[in-house]
Design a protein around this nucleic acid. Structure first.
Ligand code: FES
Ligand code: FES
Lengths: 150, 150
DNA sequence: GAAAACAGTACCATTTTGGTCCGGTATTGA
DNA sequence: TCAATACCGGACCAAAATGGTACTGTTTTC
């Protein structure tokens, strides 16, 4: 179904919850409650997101998490990459030289091209736009352009 | 890694092989040989592609497969949908109402938007372009537009 | 009617995913 | 000082998806 993993979906939910309280440091329990997700799951998500530098963590009593940058400076691509690693549509295109067919294979260049385009779409969607929950104009423009080119 | 399944990758290889011989009806064995893939695997792929109406099949001696439409009229989106079903980035966005969080969840609209944009990118890449193996200008344009919007 | 070649389906091994748990460490504050 | 809070880093497991293969049936040609 060409889908993103469920954890990645949840990660966006968690990030919007955190972004909704820009001033506060929220504990995992608070975030889990607000996102309506299980606490251990949220904990795992936040570890990944922290590792990617998207959230800051604070230990000890009254510890928790906070966005590391303003929501405008965090894109959907950042979140997806934090959860799933680099964006590449095919195995061949990331593991350069692993596929013994690559020399004769004419499609790898095309796949790399569309991977880049999809990365662009993901970069165009910011956390701030997701928080607003509105139609998000830029992605729509990209759709129209792509369709016009087809 | 936000990747398409390996079978889908192989499907594009198989489709370009078939497209390279627009006049002939190729047997599964010939296609497997040309694509350097295992015969049973190619057989499975072609069955799927046939169901989706992308290739025509002919039974009996000297049977085989042929493109159902010209390569210019087959997009990467067609192939991906044939292999993986409808393009939707999240489980929630396809199974409307399955997710009990949907009412409070503010991100589903954003995901739907990017799913549409990504569908546009996939629709913009035709089999003919993949066959040419060249940089494929349209997808690049889409990338630039998306990045400009970011 | 024999051979060629696709159709359908069932099956299994492996990998990936989703989800949970636990011992360790840092911070706060009584 | 010391206990409570809360993140950190793993290990761990069950379930699902994936990929690959095999087998039986049907259609067409010669
Ligand atoms: S590069 Fe591996 S199949 Fe194309
Ligand atoms: S609609 Fe299911 S998590 Fe957003």
């Amino acid at each position: 179904m060409l889908r993103v993993s469920r954890l990645t979906d949840y990660a966006t939910v968690v990030m919007t919850c955190i972004a909704a309280h820009p001033a506060d440091v929220l504990s995992t329990a608070q975030i889990a409650d607000e996102a309506r997700l299980e606490l251990p799951t949220v904990s795992k998500l936040l570890k990944l997101l922290g590792h990617a530098g998207l959230v800051e963590s604070f230990r000890g009593v009254n510890g928790g998490y906070r966005l590391a940058r303003p929501a405008e400076a965090i894109s959907l691509a950042d979140i997806v990459e934090a959860m799933e690693g680099p964006i590449g549509m095919t195995e061949c295109s990331v593991a350069q030289g692993q596929c013994d067919r690559q020399s004769q294979c004419g499609v790898s260049d095309s796949w790399r091209s569309v991977s880049g385009a999809i990365g662009g779409v993901l970069r165009a969607m910011t956390l701030a736009q997701m928080l607003a929950g509105r139609p998000t104009a830029p992605a729509k423009d990209a759709t129209q352009v792509a369709q016009a080119n087809a």
